[in-house]
Write a protein that binds this DNA or RNA. Sequence first.
DNA 1: AATGAATGAGCATTCATTCAT
DNA 2: TATGAATGAATGCTCATTCAT
Lengths: 204, 204, 204, 204
Amino acid sequence: MTRTAKTAAPRALVADKRFAIHRAAIKVFAGKGFFNSKVSDIAREAGIADGTVYLYFKSKEDILHSIFDGAMKEFIEDGKRELERLTSPEDRLRRIAELHLERLSADRDLAVVFQVELRGSTKFMREFSAAGFAEYLEIISTTIAEGQRSSSFRKDIKPIVAAKIFYGALDEMVTNWILSDKHYPLVPMAGEVTKIFIGGVAAK
Amino acid sequence: MTRTAKTAAPRALVADKRFAIHRAAIKVFAGKGFFNSKVSDIAREAGIADGTVYLYFKSKEDILHSIFDGAMKEFIEDGKRELERLTSPEDRLRRIAELHLERLSADRDLAVVFQVELRGSTKFMREFSAAGFAEYLEIISTTIAEGQRSSSFRKDIKPIVAAKIFYGALDEMVTNWILSDKHYPLVPMAGEVTKIFIGGVAAK
Amino acid sequence: MTRTAKTAAPRALVADKRFAIHRAAIKVFAGKGFFNSKVSDIAREAGIADGTVYLYFKSKEDILHSIFDGAMKEFIEDGKRELERLTSPEDRLRRIAELHLERLSADRDLAVVFQVELRGSTKFMREFSAAGFAEYLEIISTTIAEGQRSSSFRKDIKPIVAAKIFYGALDEMVTNWILSDKHYPLVPMAGEVTKIFIGGVAAK
Amino acid sequence: MTRTAKTAAPRALVADKRFAIHRAAIKVFAGKGFFNSKVSDIAREAGIADGTVYLYFKSKEDILHSIFDGAMKEFIEDGKRELERLTSPEDRLRRIAELHLERLSADRDLAVVFQVELRGSTKFMREFSAAGFAEYLEIISTTIAEGQRSSSFRKDIKPIVAAKIFYGALDEMVTNWILSDKHYPLVPMAGEVTKIFIGGVAAK
DNA sequence: AATGAATGAGCATTCATTCAT
DNA sequence: TATGAATGAATGCTCATTCAT
């Protein structure tokens, strides 16, 4: 044995276990829904005892929050990094759409949790809204405003409203993809959405 | 009329009570979410005994289904009737958007149930999808296709994809409106969505 | 139509309906057990409305009591009548056994209720005991005592204990017959029981 | 022993708690009947929480089954052990009767459950019959057949029928004893039953 | 007498969470 | 840290009974 019995677990292991519970929860929630998932299901999936879950998370709901927060944080960080490289508003919108769909497309279970489970309560939706979602919309909105400033986009639309439209379109693409039995590629939809949206907001 | 009073009266009462439970459930579900709502909450709200609920509905879930089915049926019927009067695809899309938002705007509780509670389970989402939702999308999609045939709309977009984008945009308007603390009017958003969408799909 | 609508129902009809509920209850209780039978099952079987049951019986349990009382009364009356014709204790015991098995054999549903449903509660068992059962045992016991007085039967046994043995043996025959999947004739068992019992109590 | 204390201790505790629930259930079922007993009654009697019951038993009905199975197993094991020591069929029958009554006499609550609660459903009766009861009858039947082979018992009776008679007589003794308000000793009844039964089956 | 809609008390079972080891 | 046995609050649904018609 290379690991001694009673020494403190390295910080990395803590992160590992927390991550394992994360992944297990995403899988379980995606499979049977948040309300129908038992904490013991998650524990079994993660290969730990029920009680151990509570050493890393405050409650079952806390896991759900944490899934959202973690993913959203990554989303936004990656998004910002990518957008720095691009200058035209059109390219930026296109890239946002691609990233949005790439992300969720790459992790169907996570997508299910995002599109379905996180919508199950106004309570969560508000927190959802309050937390990262507002920032996400803000990024889109800012991009559109820049397009207006540079006269690429028409000025008779409100950036925040247009941002919601863009987001809503992408969101619906994901939801449809999840619910569909046919396993078509999601990412190409980014082009369709961008094509119509940019057409709609472009200055004549 | 050959129907005697004896049977006619109960018939009306049955409908009344069923309707009362319907309304009560919408209110309760909207207020605390489907999973957190107790059947006894609904019964109290409807002014009846707990057991009476089960004379009109098979289960708590059956009430939710029924809310969706009933509202969707009305939606689609009204929508079709209205659309008959209009000929240009642009007018039709605009009217669809208006109707969509008018409807849900007029009944905030119903809107909450539609936007939030009905999304809480993939199981329901699939039925949702299968049942009325597909027909709803179909109406939009057909309108777009007509626009393409009459050369009002560009032909390099797939009507069904564009329909999802249109629906997604409207859906997001409603969700944002519900979650917002500010009580702004929802219906004007129909114009915003239509403006951008039609701009995006219009032939140059 | 020969019956006017609003006149009082003749006494005979009352008895008819009461009897119909009786029969329906025996069938239903035999089929699914007292606790698992619903009053509405009985009403449906009897072809009447649920509420009507309560015009003839005080409660569901009252029906069960009534089934027992009615059948027991008939049993005992018939038994006494038959026994008057016989003089030897041996013949009387044999006839008791035959009657016991004939009765229950002729109405399997009633037999199930007697052997199974009526045993389901000490509460009922005590009333069962208190009511007709004691009288039934008394008849057997008296017959045995007569046999002792006439020196046909040995005197070193207590008539009441012997009566219980005789009854217990018959009772077990019926229970076994009910539970058996093979549909053998029950009545011949009367001979077997009597043969052994009389052999056992006979004076040497 | 290679078993560590860590596993041995729980093992013992598990058995203890299971047993405690067993005893509690026997007491509660005997007191108010199976259908009228609440799981929480059993839990309270056993000094545990309601939910704990379900860590040891699948359902309320499972407890009843388990009571029967456990007692029946003991019955039969003890019976076989005792019978090995005896050779004459008469002695064996006498000993069976004694054991039967001793057992149930020593645990009145268990007796009530056996005589009353287990009879409350044909469903259970059939399983009852199928499981241990058939084996019990078999032991009696075999003993009688041996008596016939050794010419102690008359050959014009069917062993299995005689066994039912013997069992039925004993069973009735117990039922009467349970229902009686007078607290007379049950065991002496074994002699009465045996005396008459052996007299009845004895070869002349 | 008959109906059957309405009532509402009653209960087995589940499962998130705790805590002694 | 990790365990998993124990807890006990929480609730959808049933069905015997009532009563207005």
